[in-house]
Amino acid sequence: MFTLKDLKTEPPEWLLYPESQELLACLEGAGGEGRFVGGCVRDALLGIVSEDLDICTSLPPDEVMYALKEEGIRVLPTGLKHGTVTAMLGERRFEVTTLREDVETYGRHAEVRFTDDWQEDAARRDFTFNALYMEGDGTLHDYFGGLADLERGLVRFIGDPVERIKEDYLRILRYFRFLGRFSGTIFDQRSMEACRTERSGIRQLSAERIAKEILTLLATDDPSFAVEKMIETEVWAQVFKSPANWIRFQGLMRTQLRRPDPILRLAALIAGELPDPSFMRHGLRLSNRQMKRLEALWTYRDLATDSRPFEEQIYRLGRDTYYDQVSLLIADDPDNPHWKLQQEEGMKWQMPEFPVSGQDLLETGLAAGPEIGIKLKELEQFWIDEKFQPSKSDLLSRY
């Protein structure tokens, strides 16, 4: 349950911007009306400040463009075909969209018709709490019970969930993302079942969009409930082509509940569930940095059978990779104190820097060539075996 703010007595910060009021006045002066809509209104009710400010207006797009230009407001036709322009007032950006209704939808694309009916515009949106409109004085308009749903933390599609999903299959993943953000243990049965029955439509989505939704979900404070439902509805298997390691993920959440780390959480769910992580490079299109981190976690259990001192393990793996791998070992067995102690000790250890370079060996008289690299590795291993104690001069005296 959430306690919602009264936006008339506690208006959001962005509503008080002079630019916000100037823009609304401009639309009204042209004979139309403007209302803030969507995420900025939803978040304001929860006391969260949003920087993504969307306004709907009853004016047609060409009249919006004309009115803004007449007032000296810079305007960009960013999505004119679908009724959206971007108004630039100083450093503030506002997306201004004409009220519309869908004539026909084609996945993420739709043929729209402009309208002056606010409820028709609301009916084409995804979830009830994303169809809340607010006037410049804080007056709210709620056409589909979004306020009550937001207060309960209930994520519910507007109208027929199957129809909403067929209009845009990304809404399946958005459903679970919002479930992770807002819901504790409640869900709308019709919405959940629609995600299950329409899950194959996820194949139509780009890898980039899938990655963004999954990582945003896993970055919430506690995505456990949403992930569990993704697994139960087989949406997870549809995305990843493999089962999720739910037990390991629960272990990670027990030990790092309030440390949102989407890549580490993703690794807890999938590391080792496929022969190698190459699917992630194409199936999710992760960044190179994210992909390297995930690949380094794929064989984390090798660390459990590594007999080298933890200092050498850290030196070879790098501090960040060592921390990640031990985190998953802790997740495998949260009640065993061994790896937690190893991790704590490892994070205290000050990792030294190998003091000898290839140039140093050349200056001792060794000939340039592959032999330099071999000797350098031998010397480094000796330095490690001696607990990182030999100085540069001690090491070079061996040649």
Rank of each mutant, 00 (worst) to 15 (best):
M1T: 08
K5H: 15
T9G: 11
L15F: 07
Y17P: 02
L24K: 01
A25M: 03
A25F: 03
E28T: 05
E28W: 00
A30H: 03
G31Y: 05
G39H: 13
C40S: 15
I48D: 08
I48K: 15
D52N: 15
L68N: 13
E71V: 02
I73M: 14
R74H: 14
V75Q: 10
T78Q: 02
H82K: 10
T86S: 12
T86R: 14
A87Y: 12
L89C: 13
G90T: 00
E95Y: 03
L99V: 02
D102H: 07
T105Q: 11
G107Y: 03
R108M: 10
R108A: 10
E111G: 03
V112M: 06
F114R: 05
D116A: 10
Q119C: 06
E120K: 15
D121H: 14
A122C: 09
A123T: 04
A131F: 01
L132A: 07
G136D: 14
D137N: 15
G138C: 13
H141P: 03
L147E: 06
A148G: 13
D149H: 15
L150H: 15
L150R: 12
G153L: 10
V155P: 12
G159S: 05
G159V: 03
V162A: 08
E163P: 00
R164D: 02
K166H: 11
R171Y: 03
L173Y: 07
F176N: 12
F182L: 14
I186P: 00
D188W: 08
T197E: 13
I202V: 14
I202D: 11
Q204P: 00
S206Q: 09
A207V: 00
A207G: 04
I210L: 11
D222W: 04
S224V: 10
F225H: 07
M230T: 08
I231K: 06
E232N: 07
W236Y: 15
V239L: 13
V239P: 02
N245F: 05
R248V: 06
Q250Y: 08
Q250V: 03
T255K: 15
T255E: 15
Q256F: 11
D261I: 01
A267M: 08
I270V: 15
G272Y: 14
D276R: 05
G283F: 00
N288E: 12
Q290L: 01
K292Q: 10
L294E: 02
W298I: 04
T299V: 07
Y300M: 02
D306P: 11
S307Q: 12
S307T: 14
F310L: 15
I314W: 11
G318P: 00
G318F: 06
R319M: 13
T321K: 13
Y323P: 02
L328C: 10
L329D: 14
I330Q: 08
P334Y: 02
L341F: 09
E345T: 05
G346R: 07
K348Y: 06
Q350C: 07
M351G: 01
P355W: 00
Q359I: 09
L361C: 00
L366T: 06
G369P: 08
G369E: 05
G369H: 03
G373P: 04
K375N: 08
L379D: 01
F382L: 14
I384P: 01
K392P: 12
S393N: 13
L396F: 03
S397L: 11
R398F: 08
